[in-house]
C-alpha cells in the first residue's frame, strides 16, 4: 500500500530545454494568453489543435507526455463531477433515460467540452510550473506585479511567500505520508465506519501534521532570518531576468497560433454544423 503515490502536481522538473530557459515573465504571460485562448475556443474540433500544441510543448521541454497527462489527475474528480452535471441537466435531444435523469446529446457534447477544457487548463498550468523553478517563477511574478508595488502592494514579500509555499508542497506530502503510516501502524483505521467516524479518525493525522508543519515553517523562517533576509528590503539576483528575442518570439508565435485557433472556431466551424 502506498499512500499519496506519484504526485506530480506540477512540481518543477530541472532541465535545460528551450522552454526551461525562457524568461519566467514570458512563460507566465504566455500561460495567461493560452488559458484565455482555451476559453474562447473549446468546441470539440478545437481540441485537436490544443492537443497538437500540448504535444509540441512536451517535445520542446523534454518532459514526457505521460507526466504532463498525469498532472491532470488531481482534478479528475472535479472533471467527472462537472461533466456529469452537464450531461444530466442540459435540455435537448434525449439519448438515454434513467429514472428522472435524462441524458441528452447536447449534454454529452457540453460535458466533453467542459471536462476537456478543465483538463487542458490544468495541464498548461502544470507545464509552466514544471519548467520554471519556484525561485524564477516568483521572480517573474514579482516583476510583473511591480507596477502594483508603487501603490503599496507588497510584491516582493508576496514573491518570497510564493517561493516558500511552493517549496513546502513536497514537504507537506512527505510528512502527511509519514504520519498516516505511523498512525496506521498504531492501528488507526481510516477505511471503515460512517462519514463522521471517518472524519474523526483523521484527527490523529491532522494535529501532528499542523504541529510539524508550523514547527518546520518556523525553523525555515529562523534560517532565512539568519541568512540576512529582512522582509521588504530590496534584494538583488544571482541571475537577473533577461528578456531575449526568444521570449518575444515565443509570445508572438503563441498569439499567432491562438488567433488561428479562434478564427477556425468562429468561422470554419460555423459552416460545419455538428449534429
Amino acid at each position: 500500500m502506498q499512500f499519496l503515490s506519484g504526485i506530480s502536481l506540477g512540481q518543477f522538473i530541472p532541465g535545460e530545454s528551450l522552454l526551461h530557459r525562457l524568461d519566467p515573465r514570458c512563460k507566465i504571460t504566455a500561460t495567461f494568453i493560452l488559458l484565455s485562448g482555451l476559453f474562447m475556443a473549446s468546441k470539440i474540433p478545437d481540441f485537436a489543435f490544443w492537443g497538437i500544441f500540448l504535444l509540441s510543448l512536451s517535445a520542446m521541454s523534454g518532459i514526457p507526455l505521460g507526466i504532463i497527462l498525469r498532472s491532470a489527475r488531481p482534478v479528475l474528480f472535479l472533471v467527472a463531477f462537472t461533466a456529469a452535471l452537464n450531461a444530466f441537466w442540459t435540455p435537448g435531444r434525449e439519448v438515454f433515460r434513467a429514472g428522472f435523469l435524462s441524458v441528452t446529446i447536447e449534454g454529452l457534447v457540453m460535458a466533453f467540452e467542459m471536462g476537456m477544457r478543465l483538463v487542458f487548463l490544468v495541464m498548461f498550468a502544470s507545464m509552466l510550473m514544471m519548467t520554471t523553478s519556484p525561485m524564477a517563477f516568483s521572480d517573474g511574478l514579482e516583476r510583473l506585479l511591480s507596477p502594483l508595488a508603487k501603490v503599496g502592494f507588497p510584491a516582493s514579500e508576496m514573491a518570497v511567500m510564493m517561493t516558500i509555499a511552493l517549496r513546502f508542497i513536497p514537504t507537506l506530502f512527505e510528512e502527511t505520508d509519514r504520519i498516516l503510516k505511523a498512525q496506521i501502524s498504531r492501528g488507526a483505521d481510516f477505511e471503515s465506519g460512517g462519514l463522521l467516524k471517518r472524519a474523526r479518525s483523521f484527527i490523529p493525522v491532522l494535529i501532528p501534521l499542523f504541529i510539524l508543519v508550523f514547527q518546520r515553517a518556523e525553523n525555515l523562517a529562523v534560517a532565512m532570518e539568519s541568512r540576512c533576509y529582512v522582509p521588504g528590503m530590496p534584494r538583488t539576483r544571482l541571475n537577473p531576468l533577461v528578456w531575449t528575442k526568444n521570449d518575444t518570439g515565443a509570445i508572438l508565435g503563441l498569439l499567432a497560433f491562438i488567433s488561428a485557433v479562434i478564427l477556425f472556431d468562429r468561422f470554419a466551424l460555423k459552416s460545419f454544423i455538428i449534429l
Binding site: P14, P134, R167, N219, A223, R227, T236, R237, L238
Partner: peptide, 25 residues
C-alpha cells in the same frame, strides 16, 4: 538541512544570502 534550504536549485539556494545583502550579480 531540509529546514534551511530555500530554493530548489543548488546554486539558487547558495545565492539566497548574498541576494539579501543586495550585492551586484
Amino acid at each position: 538541512p531540509d529546514d534551511q534550504i530555500v530554493a530548489s536549485i543548488v546554486e539558487e539556494d547558495v545565492a539566497f544570502g548574498p541576494e539579501n545583502l543586495g550585492l551586484p550579480s
